[in-house]
Design a protein around this nucleic acid. Structure first.
Lengths: 212, 212
DNA sequence: TAGATTGTTAATCGATTAACAATC
DNA sequence: TAGATTGTTAATCGATTAACAATC
């Protein structure tokens, strides 16, 4: 990795897209790909791809392109996907259940290691191979199973408390789906997903069209 | 609305956040709020909020702040949430099922009007009050029920075909959860949600921390 | 060698932040 | 009136696009 270069957040967010598409391309038996062709597949300009990748090193061969297998390995390592992060899901409602069963996560190298809920009807059930534990044991289980990342899918009013407890139990990353702002210490990485944004923005643009 | 001002995509994406938070604030009985206080609640600078809102009109009162009820109505209208969009979900896997049952959407004014799947075991079942129809009838049902927006939660390899069929049946917006790039005509609004981005970016930053 | 394609620097574009006049 | 807070303009920052030298 280079020293002085500042890597933009936008670049980091495109890497998973590159990674996913390159794996599809590899499945198709392609061994070498140009930024031009990759860009076409992803819907990003070739310049963007070259610039993004160049901020981490020289992965391509001039006049040739990128070796697919090699580039997948490199991007995977940049993203830290080889580290086998242990993940916990808190809240087995519809969304928590869907995320627990989302195949893409395991294929990216994330390991579902714990699932929590307060509902006695859910505790003890098996979700995607993991037994649901009562929320009361969150601290104990998270420490025992060395949970790195917590996925919060509880109602908004409980989200902050869960985040606090996760952090206190050693979690260093939080992926929040509760529709509320939560606060964590600066050393903890927080990503909040807001599912109402996508649909609302579609509504916005459709309204404009209709006005014309 | 003003004439010359170009509204940034980033602004549009923050509006749902403002809307949601203002409704929470209204619930708490607050009638007037300053950009300062609203910013603190949302985690955005007051200048950002003022600038975002000002691109649509003068909603505040100098020296006073914003009237919560009025601002909610205004943002709702900007986002077109009063238009009662008819929404269809295609693919009742874990994620489709979760989205169908996501309460926030109906509270935003979206009306789940159709649900499709290919699995005979699912066809005929009731999901969030709507009977699952076989995918074969997509065109017929979408036209009959005047579907404005299609939510795609089918496996990647089927996503493009579903998008084509939705567009041909009159859908003007597509919300895609399949992990693949899909193409639609320019007049159709497409938003793609990529759930692997959030988790991967957490992984990236945790890896960096660990390296230090 | 000639053609192709990367990596990198410079130019442009867009979004955020700062500052402050207007005004409630 | 004095204090508070908006709306708006200017300055800064960050990200994308364009251009091209380097080199396989």
């Amino acid at each position: 990795m280079k020293d002085q270069i500042v890597i933009s957040k936008a670049t980091i967010d495109r890497l998973p897209l590159y990674f996913r598409t390159l794996r599809q391309i590899q499945q198709e038996g392609v061994e070498i790909i140009s930024s031009e062709e990759l860009g076409r597949r992803i819907g990003v300009t070739p310049e963007q791809i070259r610039k993004d990748l160049a901020s981490f090193g020289e992965f391509g061969k001039k006049g040739v392109g990128y070796f697919v297998r090699e580039l997948i390995r490199n991007i995977g390592e940049i993203l830290g996907l080889h580290r086998n992060w242990n993940v916990a899901i808190i809240g087995v409602g519809h969304l928590g259940w869907a995320l627990a069963n989302y195949r893409n996560f395991s294929s990216l190298g994330f390991n579902l290691a714990a699932v929590f809920d307060v509902d006695p009807a859910r505790v003890g059930q098996i979700v995607s191979g993991v037994e649901v534990t009562h929320l009361d044991y969150l601290e104990k289980i998270c420490k025992e199973r060395n949970i790195h990342i917590g996925i919060i899918t509880v109602p908004a009013q409980f989200a902050q408390d869960i985040a606090n407890r996760l952090v206190a139990s050693g979690a260093r990353g939080i992926w929040n789906f509760a529709p509320i702002k939560i606060n964590v210490p600066p050393e903890v990485r927080l990503v909040s997903e807001d599912l109402s944004v996508g649909l609302s923005s579609i509504s916005y643009y459709l309204s404009r069209q209709a006005d014309q």
